[in-house]
């Protein structure tokens, strides 16, 4: 199932559905990279609340998304990792060290807002 991407102000919000194939993930990656450039987004939120399994491929794709969007000037936050999924991920060895995570959409947005605010005050 294709992942819908919403544009909200400076941010893009991608809400992952429960059944996520590798193809969907690659599509999500391509879509996000394209949209970050087109909308000049400052932040990306990938909401994985509905995801019931995160395997090494999914984790790798999320990491790649975070890295590439960063190179294009947008910070990515992965939100909504379920407790059971988080536990399985660390047992598997998927720490997602270099990816920012937050509890849910609300927290993710709060984080991005603060980040953008922080950056712009520095610019002033």
């Amino acid at each position: 199932m294709k992942v819908p991407i919403l544009k909200q102000g400076d941010y893009l919000i991608a809400s992952v559905q429960s059944v996520l194939t590798d193809l969907d993930l690659k599509q999500l990656h391509d879509d996000l990279v394209e949209k970050v450039g087109r909308f000049r987004s400052r932040g990306v939120i990938v909401d994985v609340t509905a995801l019931d399994v995160m395997d090494s491929f999914a984790a790798r794709m999320l990491r790649t998304i975070a890295h590439i969007t960063k190179l294009r000037g947008a910070e990515t936050v992965v939100v909504g990792i379920q407790p059971d999924v988080a536990f399985s991920m660390v047992q598997l060895g998927l720490m997602l060290d270099d990816v920012t995570t937050a509890l849910d959409l609300e927290e993710g947005l709060a984080y991005l807002k603060q980040l953008v605010k922080g950056n712009s005050t520095k610019d002033d």
Partner: peptide
């Protein structure tokens, strides 16, 4: 250590 990592994945 896993507990710490998993908590971080939830944003804590």
């Amino acid at each position: 250590v896993q507990t710490v990592e998993a908590s971080r994945l939830l944003g804590a």
